[in-house]
Amino acid sequence: MNTAPASADAPRWLTEEEQRIWRSYLHATTLLEDHLDRQLQRDAGMPHVYYGLLVGLAEAPHRRLRMTELAMKAKITRSRLSHAIARLEKSGWVRREDCPSDKRGQLAVLTDAGMEVLKRSAPGHVAAVRQALFERLTPEQQKSLGEIMQIVAEGLQPDDAGADLPWLR
């Protein structure tokens, strides 16, 4: 891409080095997500996003969260969450309950069967994460990666509640 200096209204193109870093990041994150998704499909019969939903519920008080909170935690749209919860309900891993404090709201609740599948699949998932990421990095690289991702996440997490965020759609 053009690396000429940008004028006030021209795009500021990535340098060759920035382009290399960006493409490496995209390539690695796509491969990592695919690797984890395939591992969970093979070992637990669920995609990575469903595993994340089960983890979110397992970590919540009384293993239940409002659907909106769960969508926010998973960084997905409410529509995608509703579809995922329906699939998890069919498996018997999650159930929905009406929210006692808000007649329009619903809670997602992790069932005992869902907790069991999570307990069975967690060791393999942790091993896959460790093998794919942490065992490839030195302790210093792990620390740097954590710091970098924290900075990126903080910059992308707006304080504005009216922002166009997936879980608000």
Score class of each variant (00 low, 15 high):
Leu107Pro: 01
Gly124His: 08
Thr77Leu: 08
Arg38Lys: 13
Ser144Lys: 10
Ile85Asn: 04
Glu16Ala: 12
Leu165Ile: 12
Ser7Ile: 10
Cys99Ile: 01
Glu69Phe: 02
Met115Tyr: 05
Arg87Tyr: 06
Ala113Gln: 09
Lys103Tyr: 03
Glu69Ser: 08
Thr30Glu: 11
Leu31Thr: 11
Gly52Ala: 09
Ala86Trp: 02
Glu33Tyr: 07
Gly162Val: 04
Arg20Gln: 15
Leu133His: 10
Leu70Asp: 00
Ala128Pro: 10
Arg80Glu: 13
Gln141Phe: 07
Met149Lys: 07
Val129Ala: 06
Ser101His: 11
Leu53Asp: 01
Ala74Trp: 01
Trp22Tyr: 14
Leu137Asp: 10
Ser144Pro: 00
Ile21Met: 10
Leu81Cys: 04
Gln131Glu: 15
Ala127Gly: 07
Thr138Gln: 11
Leu165Trp: 04
Arg38Cys: 03
Met72Ser: 08
Trp93Gln: 02
Ser79Leu: 13
Thr29Val: 14
Gly155Thr: 10
Leu88Lys: 02
Leu14Ile: 03
Glu97Thr: 04
Ala10Glu: 15
Leu81Lys: 03
Leu57Gly: 01
Arg20Trp: 08
His27Leu: 14
Pro61Met: 01
Ser7Thr: 15
Ala6Tyr: 03
Arg38Asn: 09
Pro139Ser: 13
Ala163Tyr: 11
Glu18His: 06
Arg169Lys: 14
Arg169Val: 10
Pro100Trp: 10
Glu17Ala: 13
Gln39Glu: 15
Gly162Ile: 03
Asp102Trp: 08
Leu57Val: 02
His83Glu: 13
Arg96Thr: 05
Leu53Val: 02
Glu33Phe: 07
Ala86Asn: 10
Tyr25Gly: 11
His62Met: 01
Arg130Val: 10
Leu70Lys: 00
Asp37Cys: 11
Leu36Ile: 05
Ala122Thr: 15
Leu65Pro: 00
Ala4Pro: 01
Gln142Glu: 15
Lys73Ala: 05
Leu145Asn: 05
Val109Leu: 07
Gly105Leu: 04
Asp160Pro: 12
Leu165Met: 15
Tyr50Gln: 12
Met115Gly: 09
Ala161Lys: 14
Thr111Trp: 03
Pro123Lys: 08
Leu107Glu: 05
Arg136Met: 14
Ile148Lys: 07
Ile151Gln: 11
Gln150Cys: 08
His62Gln: 06
Leu26Arg: 14
Pro5Leu: 15
Leu165Pro: 05
Thr68Asn: 05
Ala86Pro: 01
Thr138Tyr: 12
Arg38Trp: 04
Val126Phe: 13
Asp37Leu: 04
Gly155Ala: 09
Pro100Arg: 12
Ala74Pro: 02
Gly105Met: 02
His27Ser: 15
Val49Asn: 04
Met72Val: 00
Trp13Val: 04
Asp164Asn: 15
Glu154Ile: 07
Asp102Met: 06
Glu16Gly: 12
Lys103Gly: 02
Thr15Trp: 05
Asp37Ser: 11
Gln106Thr: 04
Val94Gly: 00
Val126Pro: 01
Lys103Cys: 03
Thr29Gln: 14
Val129Gly: 03
Met67Pro: 00
Leu70Ala: 02
His83Pro: 01
Ala132Leu: 09
Asp43His: 06
Asp98Met: 07
Gly124Met: 04
Ala4Asp: 14
Glu97Arg: 08
Leu107Val: 03
Ser24Trp: 08
Ala128Arg: 06
Glu116Gly: 01
Arg42Phe: 07
Gly155Met: 07
His83Ala: 09
His125Asn: 07
Arg64Ile: 00
Leu165Ser: 08
